[in-house]
């Protein structure tokens, strides 16, 4: 999963490089949301919380 997240970050850099501003911002924000989701999944599974 972390490979995919790093891949998304690399995709963001490439989109910035190409120059698509709105797409770059959207992709970056989506990546941040996915990072938060993965972190919360990690915390809840480590604490064995049933949501």
């Amino acid at each position: 999963m972390m490979v995919l997240l790093f891949g998304l970050l690399l995709l963001c850099v490439l989109i910035i490089w190409i120059g698509w501003h709105k797409l770059a911002i959207t992709t970056t924000l989506v990546t941040l949301v996915l990072l938060c989701a993965w972190f919360s999944h990690h915390v809840t599974s480590a604490l064995n919380i049933q949501l």
Binding site: M2, F6, L9, V13, I16, G19, T28, T31, W38, H42
Partner: peptide
């Protein structure tokens, strides 16, 4: 570890804001 990787990804995301500033 998984948390270390998330911190690396987070720092890379911080860098994206500065990259956007330099590009646009």
């Amino acid at each position: 570890c998984p948390l270390c990787l998330l911190q690396r990804a987070g720092l890379s995301a911080v860098a994206l804001g500065f990259l956007l500033n330099l590009r646009f």
